[in-house]
Design a protein around this nucleic acid. Structure first.
Length: 643
RNA sequence: GCUCGCAUAGCUCAGGCGGUAGAGCACUUCAUUGGUAAUGAAGAGGUCCCCGGUUCAACUCCGGGUGUGAGCACCA
């Protein structure tokens, strides 16, 4: 006589053990039809699960995020079944759920083509129509291994052999297809309403580059056709915002074959870059950083001492000159320690905050480069804080406060914090790592914000906090970081005289707010879809004349705005006003000023905002006030309009 | 670095079972002096990514390279 308690608190009693599906049926046929799975006492289960004791039960449908996961996971099975119907020799491997969809990796003699994807999608549709029941079963390991061996599924055998423990395994069968899986799954293949295969590409077996490459097919699945459509529109929107496309269209930068992974910045792109840099300089000044500059080429021995050469020599550019080997600096920290080492430092000098817009070069693997997001030549907003152990937490706190304020000014309100701890390959004793990790945990807790622990992802010299922001498409972008380093200063001979006149090694905090200017600009371009807020816009105002008669007036107006420090230009071409408006709108200029005889007469300009909003006519002073106000609010979202 | 795809005018892209190419926009010139997202006409513009091979003939087919895209791997 199980008593089933539903999420709304109501309870139902049943004479005999019931399945989750039967509970749904007893509530209503509509719900039963929509049932994908159930949640019993907190655990996600199949709708066929039998309930013989009292339980808290929730019926999972496509409206639950769990329901969507079930759909996607089951859709991966659906796809695998379709692939094996079309290509019986393809072996299945793994097929997990990922953000917005799923994938499944297959071992096959050739790569799948886009035509194959279409065919697979069609067969998937057939299987949905067949509405095959999805059945769970349990099998012991040796039977499972025997079965997969008979089926020629060598990868599944490997997977089973690598699962620890010796308990029985669960399997899901739909028609002639069976897969090892924890589940839960949809009740039948008729449950799918909206799915699409999106791409195919290679992927290493078990994510290991020394293994063979499998064929990974990505797909997406949703609870309704409408959701699928919205998702596809989101993909389209992201494509429109692609910084590589906008960089060309807005004439911001380019790449060319002779310098792979190194941007050529054009006047407009460089203007944005410089505005961001000036801004960061002023913020760092406020936080008492001292800006420095260090050499591009440094003798290889320094990188050997710092420990970078042994780990990254393959990714460093090097230059031989006068029988000496130099590395083009891949990072700035060893150079900053050289600056610290000049002159005897006292504990009174700490914390010493050194900052550099440091140009770095790294030989990134060819396949990893991606527009401005991953380049071989970049400039970090780098900084190193030399301090005592006791000062770490306050320094980290100050850094976090600075970072939050900066991100807000750029229009990013949500920051995601993660703590990466000791990796396998590392320098320094466990005691030092314990200390470093604890100080970062303390600093994170002090922010009052949630944070996530990522074991094993720290740098080889110390743990790090990674700060990611969420852009307007909801994409998470890792930018800022602060890393504790108890090792490198000692390796490079840094020390200071402590209060008791003993010689001590300083702790070094590596930190960056933006990460690299290149990447951050890429993120900004995509976040704003190229329509930069006025303070960042390379051209803030363009003045347009109606006829040649207003040319001088426009030029004078331009000159006066330039004298106030604004970035202004005129477009006095012999073109119709509509044509000029269109062109500059496509170039995403924040303000267009139209000048005809009326405006000359009244000594005003007609102000049109980027979004098409007509602000009417204004005098020079009024327009200056408006523009100053707009520039002063940066990109802060609470005041950002949608123009 | 790996798998697969792509590389044609400044840009976005067509095209040809092997006989050296085209559109729109942009550009130049001329006409037009117009009020808030495209005025009209004419003109100019290409080593069809690079190096080999096959062929009477290669932008096209084959091989290699470079760059690039998606994904994987890597990321101090």
């Amino acid at each position: 006589m199980p008593k089933i308690t539903l999420p709304d608190g109501s309870a139902r009693e049943y004479e005999n053990p019931v399945t989750v599906m039967e509970v749904a049926e007893s509530i209503g046929p509509g719900l039963a039809k929509a049932t994908l799975a159930g949640r019993v006492d907190g655990a996600l289960v199949d709708s066929s699960t039998v309930l013989s004791a009292d339980a808290d039960v929730a019926i999972i449908t496509e409206r639950d995020s769990d329901g969507l996961e079930v759909i996607r996971h089951s859709c991966a099975h659906l796809m695998a079944q379709a692939v094996q119907r079309l290509f019986p020799k393809a072996q299945v491997t793994i097929g997990p759920v990922v953000e917005d969809g799923f994938f499944y990796d297959f071992a096959f003699s050739r790569a799948f083509t886009p035509e194959d994807l279409q065919a697979i999608e069609k067969v998937m549709g057939d299987i949905v129509k067949e509405n095959l029941t999805v059945e769970r079963s349990i099998m012991n390991r040796s039977d499972a291994v025997t079965m997969f061996k008979e089926m020629g599924e060598e990868y599944k055998v490997q997977i089973i052999e690598s699962i620890p423990g010796d308990e029985d395994l669960s399997f899901y069968r739909q028609g002639d297809f069976i897969d090892l899986c924890r589940g839960p799954h949809v009740p039948s293949t008729g449950a799918f309403k909206a799915f699409k295969l999106t791409s195919v590409a290679g992927a290493y077996w078990r994510g290991d580059a020394s293994n063979e490459m499998l064929q990974r097919i990505h797909g997406t699945a949703w609870g309704s056709k409408k959701d699928l459509k919205l998702f596809l529109q989101r993909l389209e929107e992201a494509e429109k915002r692609d910084h590589r496309k906008l960089g060309k269209h807005l004439d911001l930068f380019h790449f060319q074959e002779e310098a792979p992974g190194m941007a050529f910045w054009h006047p407009k792109g460089w203007s944005i870059y410089q505005t961001v840099q000036r801004y960061m300089r002023s913020v760092q000044d406020e936080h008492n950083y001292k800006e420095i500059n260090t050499p591009q080429l440094v003798d290889y021995s320094l990188w050997e001492k710092s420990g970078h050469a042994s780990k990254f020599s393959d990714e460093m550019f090097s230059v031989e000159s006068e029988n000496r080997m130099y590395a083009i600096k891949p990072m700035n920290c060893p150079c900053h320690i050289q600056v610290f080492n000049q002159g005897l430092k006292s504990y009174r000098d700490l914390p010493l905050r050194l900052a550099e817009f440091g140009s770095c070069h790294r030989y990134e693997p060819s396949g990893s480069m991606h527009g401005l997001m991953r380049v071989r030549s970049f400039v970090q907003d780098d900084g190193h804080i030399f301090c005592t152990e006791e000062q770490i937490q306050a320094e980290v706190a100050d850094f976090m406060a600075m970072l939050f304020a900066v991100y807000k000014d750029f229009g990013f309100d949500e920051v995601i914090l993660r703590l990466s701890t000791r990796p396998e390959k590392r320098v320094g004793s466990d005691e030092v790592w314990d200390k470093s990790e604890q100080s970062l945990k303390d600093a994170l807790n002090a922010t009052g914000l949630p944070w996530e622990l990522v074991p094993g992802e720290g740098a080889f010299y110390g743990p790090k906090i990674e700060c990611s922001l969420k852009d307007c498409m909801g994409r998470v972008q890792q930018c800022g970081t602060i890393q504790v380093d108890f090792s490198t200063p000692g390796r490079l001979g840094a020390h200071y005289v402590a209060e008791d006149s003993s010689k001590k090694e300083p702790v070094m905090l590596h930190r960056a707010v933006l990460g690299s200017f290149e990447r951050f600009l890429g993120i900004l371009i995509e976040h704003y879809a190229g329509a930069m807020p006025t303070w960042l816009a390379p051209e803030q105002v363009v003045i347009l004349n109606i006829t040649d008669k207003q040319g001088d007036y426009c030029r004078n107006f331009e000159e006066s705005l330039k004298n106030k420090g604004f970035r202004v230009s005129t477009d006095l071409r012999n073109e119709k006003i509509g044509f000029k408006i269109r062109e500059h709108t496509l170039q995403k200029i924040p303000y267009l000023l139209v000048v005809g005889d009326k405006e000359v007469e009244s000594e005003t300009v007609a102000v049109r905002k980027r979004g098409g909003e007509d602000l009417g006519t204004m005098t020079f002073d009024d327009f200056c006030a408006l523009l100053s106000q707009d520039v002063a609010r940066f990109g802060r979202s609470e005041q950002l309009d949608n123009s």
